[in-house]
């Protein structure tokens, strides 16, 4: 007994080190296996408030650029609206909606890691929940992962865990959108069969199989493609429409039918 106590006293620093190391490894592995740990994220009250303060101070510097972006988007939407064939006044019947949109601002962006998360300034109090889609005026951005009362973290498409259904525009050939962590201007589209004819410059949009994003949200254009190891699928590099290094205003998409879709899928899977 004496010897055990002596041993502990002698190596107490080493034991402390090993203990803390195991704690850190525990935290890290726990968040590897499924979601980012709900405790360790920048959406919490403390970190969120610090980021918000810093955002409030610095957000004035690029207001002009952001305004121009928003006006450009408005112009595009107006022209879509005016050129619509059977224009009728949209009634504000909220029971018919399948998507609701909330706007938010990015208060922390990151793109230099293999797993990137973005923090935005809307949370539970604004009825933002996890697994909602996030887009910008130019294209897709990511999926909400953790939510606190006033903030939320977004799993960026620049995250090696990200996997989003995408397809070639105007066709129904779909694949999965992933990221190989190398370059923050390009993401990869995999699982498109070899039979599909491709051209550099083709547009890639989100597919309809996702219960998170609506169909046809722009992602990017094909910049390069070749066959993968199995020689039966394409491996496509996509140049993103979004400049992931410069994001401020984003939209959160809530699919009101998501619950129903998931329930149905679960029922089918059980059979």
């Amino acid at each position: 007994m004496q010897q055990i106590i002596n041993f502990v006293l002698r190596y107490k620093n080493f034991l402390l080190y090993v203990f803390l190391m195991l704690v850190s490894i525990g935290f890290t592995i726990q968040s590897h296996s499924y979601h980012q740990s709900s405790f360790f994220n920048s959406a919490s009250w403390f970190t969120g408030n610090i980021y918000k303060t810093s955002h409030n101070l610095s957000s004035y510097f690029n207001l002009e650029k952001e305004n121009k972006k928003l006006v450009k988007e408005n112009t595009r939407l107006r022209s879509l609206l005016f050129n619509k064939k059977n224009t009728r006044i949209v009634e504000l019947d909220t029971s018919q909606l399948s998507y609701t949109i909330t706007s938010a601002e990015v208060i922390k962006n990151s793109f230099a890691h293999p797993r990137n998360y973005i923090t935005i300034n809307k949370g539970k109090k604004d009825s933002v929940l996890s697994d909602m889609g996030v887009i910008t005026s130019e294209g897709i951005l990511g999926i909400i992962e953790n939510v606190s009362n006033h903030n939320a973290t977004v799993q960026s498409i620049l995250n090696e865990k990200s996997n989003i259904n995408a397809k070639l525009k105007n066709t129904n050939h779909f694949g999965s959108l992933v990221w190989n962590t190398e370059n923050f201007y390009t993401v990869q589209l995999v699982d498109i069969p070899r039979l599909v004819p491709l051209v550099v410059g083709d547009t890639i949009v989100t597919g309809g199989m996702s219960s998170i994003f609506p169909e046809n949200i722009p992602i990017g254009t094909i910049s390069k493609f070749d066959l993968d190891n199995s020689k039966s699928f394409w491996r496509i590099d996509i140049a993103l429409f979004n400049d992931m290094t410069n994001i401020k205003n984003v939209y959160i998409i809530n699919n009101l039918n998501r619950k129903e879709v998931l329930e149905l899928q679960q029922k089918t899977d059980f059979k």
Partner: peptide, 13 residues
């Protein structure tokens, strides 16, 4: 630092 940068506990390690 991990808290702020969403890196689990890598910085701590």
């Amino acid at each position: 630092v991990d808290f702020f940068s969403d890196t689990m506990a890598i910085n701590a390690m």
